[in-house]
């Protein structure tokens, strides 16, 4: 498995570390419902197929990336800078 970094190009897997599901949304700081926090901290969709996830190009440019990858085939479809999250895919 190789991961394309928008800044460095396609790089070997061992240059990256993995954080996890990129679709979970942190509740607003003033959220007081424990259920919302439980959801954010613990519950995951864990799809068998395309998965949006956060990777850190730690041993490269150190950028955080949002990668779309198939959890069944390990095919990578899309990779962009995490700070551009929410904007349309290139």
């Amino acid at each position: 498995m190789r991961i394309p970094c928008p800044l460095c190009g396609e790089r070997a897997l061992e240059e990256f570390t993995y954080l996890g599901d990129a679709t979970v949304k942190r509740p607003a700081a003033e959220e007081t419902d424990p259920k919302a926090w439980y959801d954010f901290v613990y519950l995951r969709d864990n799809p068998r197929g395309p998965h949006r996830e956060l990777w850190h190009h730690l041993h490269g440019c150190r950028a955080w990336l949002e990668v779309e990858r198939d959890t069944l085939t390990h095919e990578v479809f899309d990779s962009r800078l995490a700070r551009e999250r929410g904007t349309e895919a290139k």
């Binding site: 070997a12 897997l13 068998r48 959890t71 069944l72 085939t73």
Partner: peptide, 16 residues
């Protein structure tokens, strides 16, 4: 290996 996966086969970094 360290990332979400349903593939019952892994990658080289974990092997190494």
């Amino acid at each position: 290996d360290g990332y979400n996966s349903y593939a019952a086969r892994g990658n080289m970094p974990a092997v190494e």
